[in-house]
Design a protein around this nucleic acid. Structure first.
Lengths: 255, 255
DNA sequence: CGTAGTGTTGAGTAAGATCAACTGGTGTGG
DNA sequence: CCACACCAGTTGATCTTACTCAACACTACG
C-alpha cells in the first residue's frame, strides 16, 4: 500500500546508498570494498503515511529500513490492550536492526508522521555484514546505542516520578534532535500527542497534561501543539535527572 | 580483589574455551577456523563473591565475561539514588556484550550470589568478531535476544499492574531457567530477595511482599525463602499476561 | 544469645488513574 | 459561509493503587 516510489534511476539509487553508507560510517570509515558491498544492496524508497506499519509484532520481518524523513516509533501491546512505546525513531536512524537476526518480530514499528523510508531486504544486510567486518561492527554499535537508550527508559519509568519522567524524555529528545540536526537546542518539533507521551512514559494522557502544566508553571518549558520550547534547560535537566552519558555522544561524530 | 583462580593448565583452559564456543554456537555451527580464533582468546576463571562488581557504570570496560556459575544482575542508579535492575543473568550467559563496542559503561553488572566468571579482554572478542563473521553473527544474536527481554521488561513495568508484573517476572525466570537447565518447570531457585524484586519491577519491597501473598492466596505460587514453586503454572501465566514469544525460544536449540 | 538481614503486617498517605464534562481548533459537507 | 463533527487538550471530582512509616517476627549466623 501507500504509493511506493521506486528509486530506480541510477542517480536516485546512489543518493539512497550514500545515506546508508554515511549512517554506518559514523562509527569508523569503511574500506572501498565495504562500500561496494553496501552499494549492491537493493533499496527502495517508500513514502508512508502516519500510522502505517513498517514492522508488525509476531510477523517474520523480511525488510529493514532507514528512516529518511518523518518520525516513527516502536511499540508493544499487552494482552490487556495497553500500548507501551519503546522508542521514538528520528530521521537517519535504521529502524529495524532489532529484528535483523530474530525470526519473529517481538514488537511493531509504526510511522508517527508521514515520511519516507528506505527499505531493503533484511537478508541483504545480513550477507553484507558477513562479508565485511566493518559493516557488522557498525550494526552492532548502532544496536548497542539503541539498547542503551532502552535501559535508560526502563530506569526512567521504573524509578522516577511522573514529572521527572516527562522532563527526562523532553531532555532526551532535545539532545538527540540537536545531535542529528544542527543546533537550536532550546526548541524543537515533536509530533507526539499527549496520548503518545503517556504510552511512552507509562502514564495516562491526563496525567501527562497535568505534569506538562506543572513544568510550564515552573517556567521550564513552553508547550504549543506539537512543538516544545525549553525555557530553562538547566532546571529541566535537574527536574528530569538527566545525564546524557547513556546516549554515548562522544562516540558519535558531530554531523 | 577476590581470589582470581588462574585457569592456566591446558586442560582447564580448554574447558573454558569450550564453554565460550558452545555458547556462541547456539546460533549456528562455527567453522574450524572460527573455533580456533575463539580458542586463542586468553581467558581467566575468577571466583566472585555475591555483591562484587563485574562492570561499573561510567567505567571504561576492559573485560568481557561469561557467567559460569551463580547469578548476576545489571543495574542502573538514578541521581536520587534509586536502583533499577535491568536484567538478571543466569549461568552460561555472556554478561557484558552490551558494552562490547561502547566506550563507557552506562550501567553496572554485579554478582547476585557467589559464583565464577570467565573473563577475557573485550578487545580480543572484538578482534575475533572482525576475523570471523560467524562470531560476529553469534554476538549480534545474543545481544538482540537480550534487547528483546529488555523491551518486554519495559512493557511490563510501564503497562501492567503490580501483581501482573510480578507474575510475569516469575514466569520469565521459570522459562529461562528451565531452558538453561533440564526440566523441572514448576519449581526453581531464585536468589533474589524482595528488595531485588522490587527494584526489578519498579515497586517497593513491601508491595512485592503483598503481591506475593496475593499470588499465594490465589494458589498460584509457593514462596519459600529463595525458591519459587509454581502451583498453577497456567493461571500464573494468565495473571502475568505472559507469552514467551519475546524469548525467541524456537531460535535457541534445546540444551 | 544477641544481632543483622529479611520477611510480614497494619495504618495512614500520596501519586496517579478514572470518569466525565467542557474547550477550542480544524476540517468537511451542505 | 455556516453548521456540525471530530480530535486533542484541559480541568475537576473521586477513587485506587501503591508508597511510607513503623512495629514486630523469623531465621541465620557469629
Amino acid at each position: 500500500m501507500l504509493s511506493p516510489t521506486e528509486g530506480d534511476s541510477n542517480h536516485v539509487a546512489d543518493r539512497n546508498h550514500i545515506m546508508l553508507t554515511q549512517r554506518l560510517e559514523r562509527h569508523g570509515m569503511m574500506s572501498q570494498a565495504a562500500r561496494t558491498v553496501l552499494r549492491n544492496i537493493p533499496m527502495t524508497l517508500r513514502s508512508l503515511e502516519g500510522g502505517s506499519y513498517i514492522v508488525r509484532e509476531a510477523d517474520a520481518p523480511a525488510l529493514c529500513a532507514i528512516l529518511v524523513s518523518g518520525f516513527a516509533y516502536r511499540q508493544k501491546v499487552t494482552g490487556e490492550g495497553e500500548r507501551q512505546i519503546l522508542a521514538v525513531c528520528i530521521p537517519g536512524e535504521v529502524v529495524d536492526l532489532q529484528n535483523l537476526y530474530l525470526d519473529l518480530a517481538d514488537h511493531s514499528v509504526q510511522m508517527l508522521t508521514n515520511g519516507e523510508v528506505l527499505a531493503f531486504p533484511r537478508e541483504a544486510l545480513q550477507i553484507a555484514a558477513a562479508k565485511e567486518a566493518a559493516i557488522a561492527r557498525a550494526i552492532m554499535i548502532e544496536a548497542q546505542l539503541d539498547a542503551s537508550i532502552l535501559r535508560e527508559w526502563l530506569t526512567n519509568i521504573g524509578q522516577r516520578s511522573a514529572k521527572a519522567r516527562l522532563a527526562h524524555l523532553l531532555c532526551e529528545f532535545a539532545v538527540r534532535l540537536s545531535a542529528s540536526s544542527p543546533a537550536e537546542e532550546e526548541a524543537y518539533e515533536l509530533p507526539m500527542n499527549q496520548e503518545h507521551l503517556g504510552d511512552a512514559l507509562g502514564l495516562t494522557a491526563v496525567h501527562v497534561n497535568r505534569m506538562l502544566r506543572a513544568l510550564h508553571d515552573e517556567g521550564l518549558v513552553l508547550w504549543t501543539r506539537k512543538s516544545v520550547r525549553m525555557t530553562d534547560w538547566r532546571k529541566l535537566r535537574v527536574a528530569g535527572d538527566f545525564n546524557s552519558r547513556y546516549l554515548h555522544l562522544d562516540q558519535i561524530p558531530k554531523p
